[in-house]
């Protein structure tokens, strides 16, 4: 199966979870689906579990996307997915590392997973263990001061085992990042903090894969993935309300119809 098909399937799993649980953040989950599909199916080394690469979803509100990817990889089971956000279920709305395998780090409050990931990458270097740490960061999340503390601190640590991907959907809880604060220029900011920046279309799998495989340049790498919140379901795309709205049965049917009709490359 191609990663585009896998991403499409992930979207269906997410819509199903959001519908069953009547929980929010479906738009946030859909925006990073392509990034996760490429990571989980092309990049992450997971076959030897004890020496696996580490994936951290720092924007923990998109937990459904991670759960769906773990399910698709066969790391967690259907009973986990089916009980997401439900009374007595296995999976909480935000990430708890004690919930299921594959949730490497507890994250939900923004501006935490990134710094934990930096510490992990540094520790693997210190221990001379070949494991790569991948972190997906939200654009809204990168307004947190902790992100810039970590960015400044880690630039000179020689972390060639670290890749950060910013899911830049430009739509946070209250609107566009640049309307809320002096967010742009994002690229210049990261470069000024000593990072190597690659910008890609965050829904173009070929671009994502090339960027993820790009050689270490002597600086830690951040891929700014331009994404669309709610990607894949036309009436959810780039709509602020889908940070919050519930997926009713009717919405689910409409979304499934679109996803089934999606022509995949």
């Amino acid at each position: 199966m191609k990663t585009m098909d896998q991403a499409n399937e992930l979207r269906k799993i997410i819509i199903e979870m959001a519908n069953k649980s009547q929980s929010a953040h479906v738009g946030s989950a859909l925006s990073c689906v392509d990034i996760l599909a490429v990571l989980y199916h092309k990049i992450l080394r997971l076959s030897n579990w004890d020496e696996r690469d580490i994936f951290i979803l720092s924007k923990g509100q998109a937990a459904m996307a991670l759960y769906a990817a773990l399910y698709q990889k066969g790391i967690i089971e259907k009973k986990h997915i089916d009980s997401y956000y439900l009374d007595g279920g296995f999976l909480p709305g935000h990430l708890d590392r004690f919930s299921v395998p594959g949730v490497e780090v507890s994250a939900g409050s923004l501006g935490h997973g990134f710094n934990i990931g930096l510490g992990m990458a540094y520790a693997y270097k210190q221990k001379k263990i070949d494991r790569h740490v991948y972190i997906v960061l939200g654009d809204g999340e990168s307004q947190e001061g902790s992100i810039w503390e970590g960015a400044m601190f880690s630039a000179d640590l020689g972390l060639d085992n670290l890749t950060v991907i910013m899911d830049y959907n430009n739509l946070q809880g209250y609107g566009r990042a640049k309307e809320i604060c002096h967010f742009e220029p994002v690229r210049d900011k990261w470069e000024a903090f000593g990072w190597s920046v690659i910008e890609v279309d965050g829904h173009d799998h070929a671009q994502l894969e090339i960027a993820l495989r790009a050689e270490y340049s002597g600086k830690p790498k951040i891929i700014i993935a331009k994404t669309v919140k709610g990607k894949g379901v036309s009436f959810m795309e780039d709509q602020l309300v889908w940070h919050y709205y519930m997926v009713t049965d009717e919405i689910k049917e409409k979304a499934f119809l679109e996803l089934s009709e999606t022509v995949l490359s």
């Binding site: 510490g119 221990k127 970590g150």
Partner: peptide
């Protein structure tokens, strides 16, 4: 940079330090 220091420490701890 205290927020980073603690998060970073947690990450190192997860790897076994």
């Amino acid at each position: 940079a205290e927020q980073n220091a603690i998060g970073f420490a947690a990450g190192m701890g997860l790897v076994g330090f």
